[in-house]
Amino acid sequence: MLLMAALHFNHNSSREVARTSDAYAAALMESLSEGYSRSPETLRESSAVLSSTAPAPLSTSCQEIAKDEAVGLYLARHSRFNTGN
């Protein structure tokens, strides 16, 4: 399913807004199913290669702070006395 989502996104990433009800997603899913039934091992290997080369999640580049500090920062930003400075 993840592969289908990636293919769907890549196919539509630079397209204009759809003006018709042309649903190719069903055909794409059928094609993936047929490919899997013919050679499930090849699809698993391809999926493993794609997964191993995926970049780390963006959240890993953020510095972690203590919960108490995070709550304090949140409350300071959302205080009714905050003037936006």
Results as ranks from 00 to 15, higher is better:
residue 1 M to P: 01
residue 2 L to Y: 03
residue 4 M to I: 07
residue 5 A to D: 06
residue 5 A to W: 07
residue 5 A to Q: 11
residue 8 H to S: 08
residue 8 H to R: 09
residue 9 F to Q: 15
residue 10 N to A: 09
residue 10 N to S: 14
residue 11 H to I: 09
residue 12 N to I: 05
residue 13 S to R: 06
residue 13 S to N: 07
residue 15 R to L: 13
residue 15 R to T: 06
residue 15 R to W: 14
residue 16 E to S: 13
residue 17 V to K: 12
residue 17 V to N: 11
residue 18 A to G: 13
residue 19 R to W: 10
residue 19 R to T: 08
residue 20 T to N: 06
residue 21 S to L: 14
residue 21 S to A: 11
residue 22 D to R: 14
residue 22 D to A: 12
residue 22 D to M: 11
residue 23 A to M: 13
residue 23 A to Y: 12
residue 24 Y to C: 05
residue 26 A to R: 03
residue 27 A to H: 01
residue 28 L to M: 05
residue 29 M to C: 08
residue 30 E to F: 00
residue 31 S to C: 04
residue 32 L to D: 00
residue 33 S to D: 02
residue 33 S to L: 00
residue 33 S to M: 01
residue 34 E to T: 00
residue 36 Y to V: 03
residue 37 S to D: 02
residue 38 R to M: 00
residue 43 L to I: 00
residue 46 S to Q: 15
residue 47 S to R: 12
residue 48 A to G: 11
residue 49 V to F: 10
residue 50 L to Q: 12
residue 50 L to F: 14
residue 51 S to Y: 13
residue 51 S to F: 14
residue 51 S to Q: 13
residue 52 S to F: 14
residue 53 T to M: 11
residue 54 A to F: 15
residue 55 P to W: 10
residue 56 A to D: 15
residue 56 A to H: 15
residue 57 P to A: 11
residue 58 L to W: 14
residue 58 L to G: 07
residue 59 S to P: 07
residue 59 S to Q: 13
residue 60 T to F: 07
residue 62 C to K: 13
residue 62 C to Q: 09
residue 62 C to W: 11
residue 63 Q to K: 02
residue 63 Q to S: 01
residue 64 E to V: 07
residue 64 E to H: 07
residue 65 I to H: 01
residue 65 I to Q: 01
residue 66 A to R: 07
residue 67 K to Y: 09
residue 68 D to W: 04
residue 68 D to C: 04
residue 69 E to T: 12
residue 69 E to Y: 04
residue 69 E to Q: 08
residue 69 E to R: 09
residue 70 A to F: 08
residue 71 V to E: 02
residue 71 V to D: 03
residue 72 G to H: 11
residue 72 G to D: 11
residue 77 R to E: 05
residue 79 S to G: 04
residue 79 S to T: 01
residue 83 T to P: 05
residue 84 G to V: 06
residue 85 N to K: 10
